[in-house]
Nucleic acid binder design. Structure first.
Length: 510
RNA sequence: GGUCCGUUCGUCUAGCUGGUUAGGACGCCAGGUUUUCAUCCUGGAAAUCAGGGGUUCGAAUCCCCUACGGACUGCCA
């Protein structure tokens, strides 16, 4: 029987989840669903100093909004409860002790201050301090101290950490589903801390132990983890669980739209687009960061856009529902190089999703927005408006800009249009036309159209001039949907009132 | 500095096992539709495949070097 595929998304609750993280979660999710596997949410909160209140809730809410679902995790439970590392605290020590017993790890008593000093000193000599096979010989640890001294220090309560003892020679080979084989010499690795003085494991230990315990088969994570992947491979080996080592897939990074570097929180504020799925308020500073949800993006559009940043189906199809993404997804179609995030394309995706929606959907979404503008219109009227302007926008909130004049008469009239089209005597002719429209029977598209045409013909007027001025009367500028449709929808009273009103106002100005 | 990863139109990318006029999308430009604006449709410009060496009849595709970019280099994840 084939082994069940199990993947995990393992964020740290140190702040809001950024879109790079959402994409990592998405790829994990797609991979799991595509292969009939399980998706697990594990919270990696082993650093109590960086804990941010609300971050965990934010992460969960974000993923829900995106439609990324978990089979196991802090909310839905599962066979490996608990799913929060802080609650699994007792589990890790055993593995660290096991490593010590096998001499793959050792106790180190160096204080943070001492190490800091060493780093500073090295820096001043333009080199980097590395805790490795060479330097550990000169530092205070269970490798240099006698067994008695080590025991004495530990028993007297001296703070210590447990570090891995990297082999002095040999190579470590990481095989990566996206990058192929990555080989690193052990000499290049350093004796990373596995277990901290506060009694909690570091990422490296906790991650490997939990992935093992939770039966994770594929580790799909960001490229920033590639440099420590050899350490993780070594850990599986030292722990004697190499047979359970998952397959690795390191995803390329999301880059800034301009210039170079990893996309960061700052970029969004600077370039005017969200970097986070949901709006986030920093509990400490109160600083706000915008979110895709609040900016009017549809979750499926956002997900579609994100999926295409680093992956493509190899066909020309670009619009994919979550279901379609699941069907089409495969890790070997994930690229190797980082991608710059493009806000313009994100906008285009949203447009595609908006025009796919039904008139009723769009109307339903717009009604509450109209209320905020103090517009109290009926659903059926609003829907008629939606039909006329839906193609023109990418976001629900843009409907107002494209159709406010269906709900109130313009207050101002574009001076440029007046200058170009307004002539002496045109006012009275427009008023005559208004008169005819008011008594038009029946009042509909066809009759209105022929009424205007007749009036133009009999008055010897310029076609373009009248049409554009009528538009000016209705909208206040040379914008908007088809004039006849617009006037029909506004109704004869409103349409004629707007003509009279405009003629009055403009005549006074000119 | 060191280690590792990467490099095809401005951007996202196709091009999997060497032979294509290097394809698509966003954006941009032009024309058409709309007597308006937007949408939409059609067309166009846009990558000497980072550069240089090889291998080969033939390389964006394989190898090497260089350059550039990025990540990592914490008792952070």
């Amino acid at each position: 029987m084939k082994q069940e595929i199990r993947v995990r998304f393992a964020p740290s609750p140190t702040g809001p989840l950024h879109i790079g993280g959402v994409r990592t979660a998405l790829y994990n999710y797609l991979f799991a669903r595509k292969n009939g596997g399980k998706m697990i949410l594990r919270i990696e909160d082993t650093d109590q100093t960086r804990f941010v209140p609300g971050a965990e809730e934010y992460i969960i809410e974000s993923l829900k909004w995106c439609g990324i679902q978990f089979d196991e995790g802090i909310e839905q439970g599962g066979p490996h409860t608990p799913y929060r590392q802080s609650e699994r605290k007792e589990l890790y020590r055993r593995y660290a002790d096991d490593l010590i017993a096998k001499t793959y790890a050792y106790f180190a008593f160096d204080t943070p201050e001492e190490l800091d000093a060493l780093r500073k000193e090295a820096e001043s000599k333009k080199s980097t301090f590395v805790y490795n096979a060479e330097s550990r010989r000169k530092l205070r640890n269970s490798l240099t101290l006698s067994a008695e001294e080590t025991t004495r220090l530990i028993q007297s309560g001296t703070p210590y950490v447990i570090r891995i003892r990297i082999p002095e020679e040999g190579q470590i080979v990481v095989s990566d589903l996206i990058r192929g084989t990555v080989t690193v010499d052990c000499v290049q690795l350093d004796d990373k801390v596995l277990f901290k003085a506060d009694g909690l494991p570091t990422y490296h230990l906790a991650n490997v132990v939990d992935d093992y315990l939770m039966g994770i088969t594929h580790v799909i994570r960001g490229e920033e983890w590639l440099p420590s992947a050899p350490l993780h491979v070594l850990l599986y080996r030292c722990l004697g669980i190499e047979d359970h080592m998952p397959q690795f897939a390191h995803l390329p990074l999301l880059l800034k739209p301009d210039g170079n570097g990893k996309l960061s929180k700052r970029d969004g504020d600077r370039l005017g687009f969200p970097v986070f799925p949901l709006r986030w308020t920093d509990p400490q500073s109160g600083e706000q960061s915008s979110g895709y949800r609040e900016s009017g993006y549809f979750p499926d559009a956002f997900i579609n856009m994100l999926a295409f940043l680093g992956w493509n189906p190899g066909t020309e199809q670009e619009i994919f529902s979550m279901e379609e993404l699941i069907q089409a997804f495969s890790l070997d179609r994930v690229g190797k190089s980082g991608s710059k995030f493009d806000p313009e394309k994100a906008r285009w995706f949203n447009h595609q999703y908006l025009i796919q929606r039904s008139d009723d959907d769009i109307t339903g979404l717009w009604m509450p927005v109209l209320k905020e503008y103090n517009i109290d219109a009926s659903g059926s009227y609003t829907k008629d408006v939606v039909k006329l302007i839906r193609e023109r926008v990418s976001f629900i909130h843009e409907l107002w800009e494209q159709g406010w004049f269906f709900f109130k008469a313009p207050e101002e009239y574009d001076a440029e249009v007046i200058r170009k089209r307004w002539t002496d005597g045109i006012g009275t002719q427009l008023e005559d036309l208004a008169e005819k429209i008011l008594v038009l029977e029946p009042f509909n598209r066809e009759s209105l159209e022929s009424c205007i045409k007749d009036s133009i013909a009999s008055g010897g007027l310029n076609n373009g001039q009248v049409m554009n001025l009528l538009r000016l009367c209705m909208v206040g500028s040379s914008k908007g949907p088809d004039l006849i449709s617009m006037m029909t929808l506004l109704g004869r009273e409103e349409a004629t009132a707007r003509i009279r009103r405009a003629v009055q106002k403009i005549s006074r100005q000119t």
